[in-house]
Design a protein around this nucleic acid. Structure first.
Lengths: 157, 157
DNA sequence: GCGAATTTGTTAGTAGAGCATACAATTATC
DNA sequence: GATAATTGTATGCTCTACTAACAAATTCGC
């Protein structure tokens, strides 16, 4: 049924078949977006049981490693503005994974802490992350992973 | 009970200073997400005049290089499902940048074409993209750019 | 050839993430 | 002490992505 063997590549590409990237293929930002999409997709597939997004896990992770951290500091690290940080914190608090405390040293700040449930969820999340990272790192040698991370850091400062 | 007696330097670092990435720093997916965010942010800043998103520009670009392409094929290339592709196409069509035509070879498909306005917008977008890419590539040597793109392609296949 | 399955487009609804704006409370600055 | 800046909060909007269901066209199985 597939008569493509009888047609030249050019003819197939011209009209009705799958499009080529063409010049778009040389755009670095384009590849970053596609790679991010692929990672995001695999992440959500890996996290079917635990219902957490990348952002939520990052927040739990950072709160776990920095108990008492303020929202503004979290947002600064994860490059989120205050409003975005709020919605994520609200969601995690509503699910009982973390709690707010007024900072004793600065009354404007909220000190964030994990609840026991939050710690358990983070622990479980780290296992899924390990699996997810293995999938991702499997394409590269250790040297390449190091180089990739270093270059990505140059982008996000 | 924790009292102020225990408020040592370490305690102060835990509570009041900027958080560290800690173990999160070794997660490749985390850096991809941050890099993507940085690129996305600079993109929107570069595109203040022309009101187009990355996705919309990618679609215009691919339609421009593949006139008559179907929505399903576009979505396949950009890793979008049919519903997501629809909303983007709808938006671009509403702004008069592209038009739908029934495919003659397959009545189920819509053949997509740029309007003259769409071609003009794409031309303008490519100029902004060039500026945006210069900002991005400025951090790397040509060899590094090549390696980065090659590694990102390994992620998104 | 004909009925059934598949593909493509469409619509509607849901959700996460991001951004802008405005406001209140607290702290810092002059 | 008055004013400015910081932090959290609330509201509303946009874009992207996903699911589910449906219709029309095509392809497949018999």
């Amino acid at each position: 049924m597939d008569q493509s063997v009888l047609m030249s590549e050019k003819a197939r590409n011209d009209a009705d078949d799958t499009p080529e990237f063409g010049q778009l293929d040389g755009i670095v930002g384009f590849h970053i977006r596609l790679a991010h999409g692929a990672v995001y997709r695999h992440f959500t597939e890996t996290f079917t049981g635990l219902d957490l997004t990348q952002k939520q896990v990052s927040v739990l992770w950072l709160v776990g490693e920095n108990p008492g951290v303020a929202q503004i500091e979290l947002g600064g690290r994860l490059r989120m503005d205050r409003a975005t940080t709020m919605t994520i914190i609200n969601r995690l608090q509503a699910r009982g994974y973390l709690r707010r405390e007024r900072s004793s040293s600065d009354g404007r700040k909220q000190a964030l802490h994990l609840t026991p449930e939050g710690e358990a969820a983070l622990e479980q999340a780290k296992n899924s992350i390990a699996e997810h990272e293995a999938w991702l790192k499997g394409r590269f040698t250790p040297q390449e992973v190091e180089k990739l991370v270093e270059m990505l850091e140059r982008i996000h400062e």
